[in-house]
Write a protein that binds this DNA or RNA. Sequence first.
DNA 1: CCTGTCACG
DNA 2: GACGTACGTGACAGGG
Length: 932
Amino acid sequence: MAFGKGHHLHLIDGSAFIFRAYHALPPLTRKSDGLPVGAVSGFVNMLWKTVEDNRGPDAPTHAAVVFDKGSHTFRNDLYDQYKANREAMPEDLRPQIPLTRDATRAFNIACLEQEGFEADDIIATLACRARDAGARVTIVSSDKDLMQLVGDGVDMFDAMKNLRIDSDGVVAKFGVTPDKVVDVQALAGDSVDNVPGAPGIGVKTAALLINEYGSLEDLLERADEIKQPKRRQTLIDNADQIMLSKKLVTLDCDMDLDYALDSLEVKEPIADELLGFLTEMEFRTVTRRIAEALNVEVPVIPEEESSATSPSDPPEAIPFDATGYTKVNDIKALEEWIARAHARGYVAVDTETTALNEMTAELVGISMCIEPGQACYIPLTHKASAADDLFGSNELADDQLDLEDVLALLRPMLEDPSVLKIGQNMKYDAKIFARYGVSVAPIDDTMLMSYAMHAGLHNHGMDLLSERYLGHHPIEIKSLLGSGKAQITFDRVAVDDAVKYAAEDADITLRLWQAFKPELHKKHVTTVYETLERPLVGVLADMEMTGIKVDREVLSKMSNAFAQKMAQLEDEIHALAGHSFNVGSPAQVGEILFETMGLSGGKKGKNGKYSTPADVLEDLATEHELPGRVLDWRQIQKLKSTYTDALQDHINTDTGRVHTSYSIAGASTGRLASTDPNLQNIPVRSEEGRRIREAFIATPGHTLVSLDYSQIELRILAHIAGIDALKEAFLEGQDIHAATASEMFNVPLDEMTADVRRQAKAINFGVIYGISGFGLARNLRIPRDEAQGFIDRYFERFPGIRAYMDNTVTFAKEHGYVQTLFGRKINTPEINNRGPHAGFAKRAAINAPIQGTAADVIRRAMIRMPDAIAKLPAKMLLQVHDELLFEVEESAADDLIAVAKDVMEGASMPAVDLTVPLTVDAGKGANWAKAH
DNA sequence: CCTGTCACG
DNA sequence: GACGTACGTGACAGGG
C-alpha cells in the first residue's frame, strides 16, 4: 500500500539526541581501547526507549532518524554569521558521530542526512510530504525551530519530558499559532543560532505584534502605526535584517530527496545486527536489556579489569539462577546454615512480612545468603491457600518450621557481635526482629552504602541497585502479590514462589555488599558511612518504635470544628460565585475567577487548566472577596485532611502512639525524611495550625522537651564562607537578621525597624538557597531590580558569600559532587547541563553543603544521644531537621535539657571545630505546642 | 498515575 | 537579550 492515509510517520531528531546524551552523561570510554562512547551509549538508550515506548495502537508505521551533515548550509550563504557563535564540537564527541549512524542502522531504522542541509530541513520536507499525503506525523524533538511544522496531523513529542506538543503547545510556547511561528522567530531572533531578529524584541513582544498585525509583512508595512517610539524605530530600522531572519528560521519544505516515504517503513530490529553493534561497543547493561526484550540469549562481553560500580560495566560474576536457592524446612538444614554464617563471619539476611509498616507487619519468612548464588528461605507462617475464603483457609501451609523454634536457633547468631548481618534497608528488618525479641547487631546496610556513594545520582532501592550494579532485574514483588484491590499479603504467596523471590533478595543483597564494600574506600566515604549512616539505624529504629502519644479526642474535636467552618465557607463562596461548584478543584476555582468573574492574571498550567496558587489568590483578594475565602477554605481543608483526620488513623491500636518511619537515604543532602505519617511538617506557622501540636502529648507524669538549633544553616554558612561580620554577630549573640540589616543598610541596631529586618532575613535565607533577584523579589513582593539591588549590596558587604557560591559551583563542575564539612558527598550530575536546568543544578549545589552539614551535625548528636541520656528516664522521640523532641519524667526534665543541649551544641566536635558557636534553644511542656 | 497545592525546616 | 529561577522534603485531592 502506498504511503498515505492511515500511516503514521515518526521523525526523530537524531542530532538533538546526540547532544542531549553527550551533555547529560558523564564521559564514558570503551574498556578495551578507551574509545569515548558516552554519547553513543546515551543515544542508544534514548533510541531504544523511543522504540519501546512506541509499541501499541498508536505505533508508527514509518520512521526515520534524521541527522545534520556538514557545517555549511544554504543559510550560511544567506548570512555568514549564522550559527557563527557555536562552540566547536568537543574532541571526545567527534569520533562518536559516525557511531550514532551505525547505531541507528543497527536498530534497522532509516538513517537520513544530506550534505549542506540541517536535519530540520529534512524533517520539514518529509513532514510536509507525509502530511500532504494524508498521514499523521510525529516529530520526536523538543526543538522550538521545528514547531512551525505543527498542525494538520503533525505533532511533536518531547521524549525527555514525555510530552506531546500540538498546536496548543506551540501557542503556549510562542503565543501564536504554528503558521505564525516563523514570524515570531524572525522578530525575536535566536542567540543560540545567531539569528539577529529585531534588537530589543523577544518572543513575548513579537507574539503581541504578530497577533495584532496578522503577519510579519503586514507588521513591517504598517510599522509607523506602532505607538511605542522605540519599538517603532527598531522595526523600521531593521526591516531588512528581520526579513533575513525570517529566511533563516524558515525550514525548507521542498528539498530534493531521492527516496520515497514508503522506504521508511518500520522494520523490527535484526537481533544479530543490533546485539553485534552493542557488544562491539561493550555496553553491558543495555545489551542485556535489549537481548531480554528480543527474547534472545544475552551475548557475553569479555570482562576486562573493571570497577564493580561502573553503571555501564556491571560484573558478570556468577549468573543469577534459582537452582542455588533452597527451602529450609528441617532443623538440621537450619543449623547448617547458621554454622556456615558463624564460620564465614557475615550473612545477608532479609525478612518477608505481611505489611510495609514494621509496627504492624508479621513475620512470614526469613532468607539468608552467604555465597553469591547460594541462598535459602525459611518459610514460617505461610497460609495454606491463596485466599482467605469461607472454608477456614487461614490454616498454615504444611512443611514449615515453627516460628519460635527458628527464632530461638537464629537469635544467638543474629545477636552475635562476631557475625555481621548484611541487609538492604536493615532498619526495617531490625525492627521486625526487635518485635520478636531479637536485637540484630552488628549490621551493614547496602542501601546506606549506596547512599554514601551515590546520593544525588539515583535512589537506593534494591531493584534499582540490582539492575544498575549487578545488571540483574530482580523478580518483582508485584508478580507475587498483584496490585491494587486484588493485592494479597506475602503469607498468601505459595511457598515455592516465595523461596525464589526471598532467596534472590538475600543473594542480591550479598552481591551488592561485595561490590560496594571496596568502593566505599575508593570513593572516600567510609567515614561517612561508618559515623553518619550505619550507627543511625539502631537509633532511629528505637525512636520509631517508641513513637509519640497523640490524643485522639483533641484531633477529633478539631476535625469537627473544621468541618463546620468549611461548610460555612463553602456556602459563602458559592453565594459569591453565584452558583455551586467544587471549591477543592483548582480548575473550577480558576474558571470562576478568570472566566465567570473576569478577573485578570489567570495563568494556565501544562494541562491547560488555570493555576490558582496561594500567591495569585492573595493578589486577587484585594479585588474581590472570593479568593480570600477560598484561601481560608484551603487552609482548613489542608489541616483537616492531612492532620486532624489522617493522624487519627496513624494511632497504633496497641501502643496508642503514632510511629513515623524515617528514611535515612531519602533526601540527597543527608537530611532525614519522615513518612507514614510525616511528622516533620506538623503545622506551626499559623495560629490555627499550631494548635494541632496540642494533640501531641506526654504520658502522665512525663513532659515533652524540645531542643532546636538556632540558625544552624546560617552559622554553617558563616563558617564555611568565612564571613567575619556574621561570625562576630553570632559570637556576640546578636539577632543575626537585624545585624545583617544593620551592616547592609547602615542602620544602627537600636534603630532597626521590623520591615528592614524582615528584608534582611529574606536575604539571609535566600543566600542559603542560591539567591536570585527573581526569587527574592517574589518572596518580598518587591520589584526585581530592587531585589537585585539588595543582593548586590549584600555581596558587596559580604564578599566571601559570592566567593563561596562561585567556588562551590566550580568544584561541582570539576568533581561532579559537592561535600559537607564531614565529608558527605552529594553528587551533582546536572551541574554541567546547559539551558534552563543549569540554574537549578547550581543552586542545589550551593545549598547542599550547607543543608548537608547541618544534617550531619544533628545526626552526630542523635547517634551520641542514647548513651548520653542512658541514666535519665527519657526517650528521644522525633527529629525535625534542626529539632529533637524528647519525652521525660517531669522531675528529670531539666537534667535532660542540660545533657541533651551539651550533646547537640558539641555535636560537630571533635571532627570539625566550627568557628561559630552552635546554640540550642530548649522548651518543655505537656504537649508539643508548649514545648516548642 | 500525574499535577497542583501546601504543610514543614 | 531573554529565559526561568529561590533549597530540601511528603501528603492529599482532583481528574483523566
